[in-house]
């Protein structure tokens, strides 16, 4: 088992993808933290036509540090899809299953490796967002670490990225064409889901399911500020973690089951 996991890590770190993603996620963390650090601490009067944002000091700091998470989890979704999708595309899945013929074990190795990869990228992202965010907040005379709850948020953002990688793994198995899987995965998470959230929020019964969408669950995990005037009650942080975890478990269990039955030809 340990050797299969080591092999998955080597697979990931021997192509150029990993440092491209690393740069992307670092820059996203830094830029979004800088922008939100500036925007959220501006006088309310200056924010123009956008929705008013409100939150406690901790929520504001959380929002600044996890501002890049939205880009981050899309990147990890892509990483998860590619960890299996590139194996289908370049037919290396054959070599993988020849070295680890027990397929449940092979998939478990991918799952553990992706959680680890999610954590590593999470740290890279936080390196960017916390350094830049803390500087901007300090310049604005705001305490960059108002409570220990901030640490919980930072830890949960690592978990969220790992879970999104597992969701990607499931999507990658569900849609074996890698390019299609990335388009569908990112399209759903980035465009369809926010539109649905926005639309359903106006429908009384449907508004209740909106917090259970994966992106919304992720946002509630890191408990940032919320847009004013929305009729949606977001989940508590642990609820968000459980919901996102459920998506990740369901998709990776499905992926493992599907892979164990597949004919690889």
């Amino acid at each position: 088992m340990g050797s299969a996991i080591k092999s998955e890590f080597r697979k990931f770190f021997t192509t150029r993808l990993w440092w491209g993603m690393a740069i992307g996620i670092f820059v996203a963390g830094a830029v979004f933290a800088g922008f939100f650090g500036w925007a959220l601490t501006s006088e309310n009067g200056n924010t123009g036509g956008g929705p008013q944002l409100e939150g406690t000091a901790t929520q504001v700091v959380n929002s600044v540090y996890t501002a890049g998470l939205g880009v981050g989890y899309l990147l990890l979704l892509t990483v998860g899809i590619m960890q299996i999708g590139s194996e289908y595309r370049h037919k290396t899945i054959t070599a993988t299953l020849l070295s680890t013929p027990k397929r449940v074990q092979a998939m478990l190795a991918k799952i553990i490796a992706l959680l680890g990869i999610g954590g590593v990228y999470g740290l890279i992202s936080l390196l960017g967002s916390v350094s830049v965010g803390a500087i901007v907040l300090t310049l604005r005379d705001i305490d960059p670490f108002p409570s220990t709850e901030v640490l919980r948020t930072l830890a949960l953002s690592l978990l969220a990225l790992g879970l999104w990688a597992l969701i990607g793994l499931g999507v990658g198995i569900l849609i074996p064409n890698q390019v299609a899987a990335i388009l569908v995965g990112v399209g759903v998470a980035w465009i369809i889901e926010p539109l649905l959230s926005f639309g359903l929020a106006f429908v009384e019964w449907a508004a209740k399911i909106v917090p259970y969408f994966p992106s919304n669950a992720t946002n509630s995990m890191v408990s940032g500020v919320t847009a004013q005037g929305q009729d949606v009650d977001f989940l508590p942080w642990w609820g968000g973690a459980l919901v996102l975890g459920a998506y990740a478990v369901a998709l990776s269990v499905f992926g493992t089951w599907r892979t164990s039955r597949q004919d690889i030809s």
């Binding site: 050797s3 299969a4 080597r10 021997t14 150029r16 370049h90 054959t94 993988t96 020849l98 680890t100």
Partner: peptide, 25 residues
């Protein structure tokens, strides 16, 4: 076993391909 001559990731060096397999084995 060697099943197909095409089953390498084009962005990975041949040596790294073998290192991936060596780790798994």
């Amino acid at each position: 076993s060697a099943l197909e001559a095409t089953n390498f990731h084009p962005g990975r060096t041949g040596r790294d391909h073998l290192r991936v397999l060596a780790a798994a084995g």
